[in-house]
């Protein structure tokens, strides 16, 4: 089932007298329950595409239907609300609050969703367990490794039970082993929770693990590859 449908997206930036077209009438659909990867060289427009699909940046032209909602017809407040209810984000920089323990980082967004403290703590524990960080739950970011921080960030996205999970270069700051853990986690989330996981990366390690790879260059998608169905443990 397609949970994200983009139609004729156009986006450009003006720098001085130069106008650079980053997206040139791009259309795509993304399905639930899969890890979809947008790959391409830096500057090809993949991060811009992610920010438009996730409701963070308004396109010059075109529309995005996310969970049957026309994102860019909404006002700012309902966009915030949409993201709060339905989306999770994982960024390249982990962006964790230095003052909060891993458990508190994960609980934090739930407070804004109106989840009570006790329920939030329970959900945060489950989310941290899912990324294998239960023993590290009481630690501050300064006491965690890079890979652990990114797993906390994933748990923070996951704890909201989002239908859409966006990840921007989630592995590029990590070594091979930690990158592998993060990739596996993202894919498991897609398969087990039926979440639409859309990941942007130029990390070649990710390509072999994605269920679908969209290759992008110069503001258009020029290749759409779907992996052969394989068992969960085959990776």
């Amino acid at each position: 089932m397609s949970t994200l449908i983009a139609n004729d997206l156009r986006m450009g930036y003006t720098s001085g007298k130069l106008r650079a077209e980053v997206l040139r009438g791009l259309s795509l659909t993304v399905d639930a329950g899969q890890l979809t990867l947008i790959a391409g060289p830096s500057g090809c427009g993949k991060s811009t595409l992610l920010s438009i699909l996730s409701g963070l940046q308004r396109p010059d032209k075109g529309s995005v239907m996310a969970l049957s909602e026309d994102l860019w017809r909404s006002n700012r407040r309902s966009l915030d609300h949409f993201r709060l209810r339905h989306t999770g984000f994982v960024f390249q920089g982990f962006n964790l609050f230095p003052a909060l323990t891993a458990l508190e980082q994960v609980m934090l967004p739930l407070g804004y969703m109106g989840v009570g403290d006790r329920a939030a703590r329970e959900r945060a524990r489950v989310a941290l367990d899912e990324v294998g960080l239960t023993p590290r739950a009481h630690l501050l970011p300064a006491e965690l490794s890079g890979g652990e921080k990114q797993r906390v960030a994933i748990a923070r996205a996951l704890v909201k039970h989002p239908q859409l999970l966006f990840a921007d270069e989630p592995t590029s700051a990590l070594d091979a082993a930690n990158g592998q853990i993060v990739i596996d986690t993202l894919r498991r989330i897609a398969h087990e929770h039926g979440t639409t996981v859309l990941c942007v990366s130029h990390d070649p390690r990710l390509v072999t693990h994605a269920d679908r790879v969209l290759e992008m260059e110069d503001g258009v998608i020029w290749n759409d590859r779907r992996a052969e169905p394989k068992s969960e443990n085959a990776s």
């Binding site: 989306t87 962006n95 967004p109 804004y112």
Partner: peptide, 14 residues
């Protein structure tokens, strides 16, 4: 802390 605030905002915190 602006990156952390931006992350919260991305997660839908107004």
């Amino acid at each position: 802390s602006v990156r952390e605030y931006a992350t919260l905002h991305a997660l839908g915190v107004g």
